[in-house]
Design a protein around this nucleic acid. Sequence first.
DNA 1: CGGATGGTTGATGCGTTTCAACAGAGGTGG
DNA 2: CCACCTCTGTTGAAACGCATCAACCATCCG
Lengths: 226, 226
Amino acid sequence: MGSSLTWAGTLQRGFAIPHSDPDIAALQRAATKVRLQRNVTIFNEGDNADHLYKVTSGVVRLCKYMSDGRRQVCGFRMPGEFFGLTDVQLHECSAEAVTNVVLASYRQEQFQAMSETMPVLRRQMRSVLSSQVLEMQEQIVLLGQQTAMERIASFLLALARRTGSEHDDVVDIPMSRQDIADFLGLTIETVCRAFTDLKRNHTIEALTAHQFRLRNLAALNALTAI
Amino acid sequence: MGSSLTWAGTLQRGFAIPHSDPDIAALQRAATKVRLQRNVTIFNEGDNADHLYKVTSGVVRLCKYMSDGRRQVCGFRMPGEFFGLTDVQLHECSAEAVTNVVLASYRQEQFQAMSETMPVLRRQMRSVLSSQVLEMQEQIVLLGQQTAMERIASFLLALARRTGSEHDDVVDIPMSRQDIADFLGLTIETVCRAFTDLKRNHTIEALTAHQFRLRNLAALNALTAI
DNA sequence: CGGATGGTTGATGCGTTTCAACAGAGGTGG
DNA sequence: CCACCTCTGTTGAAACGCATCAACCATCCG
C-alpha cells in the first residue's frame, strides 16, 4: 500500500574498503551507500522489504502509525546498527531519518542468499535479531509498568550506554521531544516536565536542549526502578 | 541467579510418533514430554537457557519482574507455539504455566546444531523469531498508544484469532484477570470494568468469567482503533 | 456449611493529558 | 548584522482516565 521510497538521495556502489575476510568483503561489495536528509522517509510500513540497511552515520527512527494518526516510535537505530531485516515480504515499520544520515543498503534476497552459505553472516543476522528482541522486551516493560519519570531515566541511561558517551557523562539527544514522547508512550509536555525536574534535582544539566550532562548516574539508575 | 527448574513434572523420552520427513522425525525424537501443574515455574529469567519448549496443550505465560515486584506479562504461548528459543546464554523472561500444561522440551544446543545442517529447521526457527517480533511490535503499540478499552478489545480479538474460535464467536480465556492486567499494562479493576462495559453494550456476553461470546465483532474491531 | 480464592463494583486520589500561552533557537531576507 | 518569522521546547491551569483503597460477591472445594 505504502508508496515506494522517493529519495533524492545520493547513491554510490562499491564504496566499501576491501576486507581481509572474503565473506565480509563480499558483503561490503554488496552494499550501496545512501545519503538522506533529515525527516525523509526511508520506507513505509507495508512497503516491499526488498532492502535492508545499516546506519553509517546519523540516526533513524522506526515507527508504526495508527489510523487516527497516533504514532508509536518502536526504536531508534544508531551508527553500526541494522534495520529493515525481516523474514516477511513487507516492512512492519516505517523508517524515517531523524538527522541527516548515511546508510549502507543491501538487497534483502542477496543478504538471505549469502546467509545460506556464510555461517558468519548467519550468526550476525541471528545476533541482530536477538538484540532486537531484547530491546523490544525492555520497551514492553517500560511501556507497561514504568512511570513517566522512570521511562525518562531509562531512556537517558540507554542513550548514554548506546552512544558510548558515558566516559564524560555528556549525552547527545539527536531526536525531538516529540520523537522521545512517541517512543516512551508519553506526551511532549510530560517529557519536558520530567527533564525540568531532573535539572532542578541537578541529576542532569542541559548544555543545550539536545545535549545533557548526566551529573548523577546513581540517582538516574535509582529512578529507573528496574 | 534464578534457581533451576524444580518441577515435579512427568518426563518421558521419544514420545513422538515417527514422521515421514527424516529431519522432522529427528527433531521429534529429540523432544521430551513434560507435564506440569498450573502456576508452576518452568524457568526463571536469568536461568541457563539449556532447553526450549513447544506447547502441546495448555497455556504458558512469559513474564519479566521488576525489583519491586511489578510484573509485566510479555506474552502467552498457546498449543503449537515455541518459547525459550534464544541466541543468548540466559533466558530473558520467566515462563510459568497458566493452566496444567504438556510441553515438548528440546535441548537448545541440539536444536542449534541441528539447524546448522537442516534448512527446514532453520526456516522454522526464523519464522518463530519473526512472528515473535511482529507480536511484540503490536504489544508495543498497544502499551504505548492505546487506551484501556482499546487494549481490552485488541486482546479479545487477538485471543479469538489465535485459538481459532472465531467460527462460533466463543472464546476461552484461560488466564486470570491479573494475568490480563499485567499483560495489558493495566490493573485488575480496570480490566474488570472494561469487561463490564462491554457486557452492558452487548458487545460481549459472559458465559462464565473465563468464557465470553463475542456478539459484535465489528464493534470490537472499531474499539481497537488500529 | 464455611473458608479461601478470584472476580466485581464503588468512592476517591493522583499522574498524566489536554489546552493554552509563552520563550528560545535557528534560519532567512532586507 | 539585525529584524523577523517559524519551529521547537517550556511552563501553567484544568480536566480526565486510570490507579488505589475498600468492600462485597461468586465460585470452588474441603
